[in-house]
């Protein structure tokens, strides 16, 4: 009987090793973006738009900065052209933001201004995409729940607010509050994301579950 236990112990140990080995090779996400959002409320207490800064991670920034310098041989032209590409890439996905007023999605316009800038961190450039959105129509927000979620749907890129201080409201004297709600993906989903991601079709919608939400109340 002892030997039966031995077999069990052994096989459990073996399969444990196997399991740990076989997954998590293709973990999502692959890139990280630090978010910074500034929400604009006008004198009439209406939401007029918001600005967003996307700070890309070191590795992404370094490679893409080097590549744009190779391609354009000029920093300002390279950054401007890359900004156009980036904005064009995220345009079909509503600039990766979902703005909801009282549960209804509000479609985002083309950003009024956008630039790609670099900031030196430890002597190396970090890319920051800055976009300024002005809504088609200002929205009266008093007493309504407004939420803003920014996420990349396939979760190839994780987008997070490093802290509560990365959300600001320019409330023009109105008493508005912004609250950051962290994502609470189920354990299953975390497992799924960090394990084998099968293909694009399967990861589509994954970002949603990891998205942080900014709630605004005036």
């Amino acid at each position: 009987m002892n030997y039966n236990n031995f077999i069990k112990a052994l096989t459990t140990a073996l399969s444990t090793v196997l399991l740990l080995c076989s997954s998590a090779v293709f973990a999502h996400p692959h890139n990280w973006i630090d978010l910074h959002t500034q929400i604009k409320i006008d004198e009439q207490g209406r939401l007029t738009g918001f600005s967003q800064h996307w700070s890309f991670d070191q590795f992404f920034s370094m490679i893409n900065y080097a590549e744009l310098m190779n391609e354009y041989n000029d920093e300002s032209i390279g950054l401007a052209s890359t900004a156009v590409k980036m904005v064009a890439n995220v345009a079909p996905d509503q600039y990766l933001s979902v703005l909801k007023v009282a549960g209804e999605s509000v479609s985002l316009p083309v950003p009024k201004r956008y630039t790609l800038e670099t900031v030196l961190v430890d002597g190396n450039p970090i890319l920051i995409l800055k976009m300024h959105f002005v809504l088609h129509e200002p929205l009266l927000v008093k007493g309504k729940n407004i939420s803003l979620q920014t996420f990349e749907p396939t979760y190839f890129v994780a987008m997070n607010y490093p802290s509560r201080e990365h959300i600001r409201i320019d409330s023009n004297g109105h008493n508005c509050k912004a609250e950051l709600v962290r994502a609470t993906p189920s354990e299953e989903l975390v497992n799924y994301a960090i394990s084998l991601d099968r293909n694009i079709r399967d990861t589509q919608g994954l970002g949603d579950d990891f998205a942080e939400r900014v709630n605004i109340q005036c």
Partner: peptide, 11 residues
């Protein structure tokens, strides 16, 4: 099955 050639959708 898992060998997807996913790329960053932003750039």
């Amino acid at each position: 099955d898992a060998n997807s050639t996913l790329t960053n959708p932003i750039l």
